[in-house]
């Protein structure tokens, strides 16, 4: 949930590219530091500190149930992780999940936000309806969908068979389990992106729509030429937050399939959890975490670099047309 407030804070100034802000007076620095202190202290204590400790631990044969770091392992843990097919498989499962969930979560959120914004009446209902699932805890979502996916009895199967298709074994088939989990996740977390897009939509100056209507633009042209370009910054933010959220996947699989069948939905975080907490090998788990951290860092960096350039381009283009 930390990301929610962060995202909202970041989105407000974003869509209107203004002139560079004048430098702040020096005296603001101290009070800013004072205001930041409670957060910074906790952040260092609970995020930075443990992360650094984890990095150190990854070079040792640390065990969860034995005191201290135990013997120095050098790069052995890293070599083992890089040579482990289980690690690579689970990493691929996480990436496959990200590929399956990110496009629908971005596109559908945008579509629903635009639709909900255009509903003349009862707008609050649609906003609530799309956002509500996001408020549910993962365990509740998992139980609801386990129910829906029950073979032969569940609603999901009934819907599929009613249109004349054969029902897949949603969570029991190696080829279907990940898709089923992706569907669940889209339903669950769509609301967050939806809200970001709603906020973005409200920041678009209304004059642009009036002007474009006078120029003879239809609704579809308005969406294509005004709405989507001006949401460029929001889209960049939504995509990067979504990729990170999808890469962090753990709960749904852990509860709904426990990584099965035959490990086909074990995410890399569950692999780290398994080796670290179940098999007590925290040193090795720390090395696997560090490798995963590097992957996330690389993906985020590449995406941010790509979109920063692109969104500046969008903004300039939209500004020119407006």
């Amino acid at each position: 949930m930390a990301s929610t407030t962060e995202a909202v804070d970041r989105i407000r100034p974003a869509p209107v590219p203004g002139p560079a802000r004048p430098g702040r007076p020096e005296s603001h620095g101290r009070s800013a530091a004072l205001f930041l202190a409670p957060f910074v202290v906790l952040y260092v204590l609970f995020i930075i500190g443990p992360a650094l400790y984890g990095l150190v631990m990854s070079f040792f044969d640390t065990s969860m149930v034995k005191p201290g770091l135990r013997s120095f392992a050098g790069f052995d843990n890293y070599a083992e992780a890089l040579g482990s097919s289980d690690f690579w498989h689970s990493l691929w499962h996480t990436i496959w999940f990200t590929i399956l969930t990110t496009p629908p979560l971005v596109v559908l959120a945008l579509v629903f936000a635009i639709l909900a914004e255009r509903v003349p009446r009862g707008r609050w209902f649609f906003r609530l309806a799309f956002f509500l699932p996001y408020v549910l805890p993962s365990a509740v979502v998992a139980l609801i969908w386990l129910f829906l996916y029950t073979p032969a009895l569940g609603l999901a199967g009934k819907i599929v068979t009613s249109v004349g298709l054969t029902e897949p074994n949603w969570l029991g088939d190696q080829n279907w389990a990940m898709v089923s989990l992706a569907i669940t996740t889209v339903w669950w977390t769509l609301g967050f992106n939806f809200v970001l897009y709603l906020a973005g939509l409200q920041e678009i100056p209304r004059e642009l729509y009036e002007a474009s209507a006078i120029d003879g633009a239809g609704p579809w042209q308005q969406i294509r030429r005004v709405t989507i370009p001006l949401l460029g910054r929001t889209t960049a933010l939504v995509v990067v937050l979504q990729i990170i959220a999808s890469l962090k996947v753990f709960d749904q699989m852990y509860i709904m399939t426990d990584g099965g069948p035959n490990f086909s939905t074990r995410s890399v975080l569950q692999y780290i959890y398994d080796v670290g907490f179940t098999s007590y090998r925290t040193g090795y788990a720390a090395a696997a975490s560090t490798l995963f951290f590097l992957v996330v860092l690389a993906i985020s960096a590449v995406w941010l670099m790509l979109t920063r350039r692109q969104s500046l381009g969008w903004a300039a283009k939209a500004g020119g047309e407006g």
Binding site: V8, E117, Q202, R206, Y209, E210, A213, G218, P219
Partner: peptide, 25 residues
């Protein structure tokens, strides 16, 4: 549809305010 665009923001749409956010928090 087009006509709805320009008029909307001024009257009903509830904005996300800092106070609202704090209250929710």
């Amino acid at each position: 549809m087009t006509a709805h665009g320009p008029h909307r923001s001024t009257d009903s749409a509830p904005h996300l305010t800092r106070r609202g956010l704090l209250r929710a928090a």
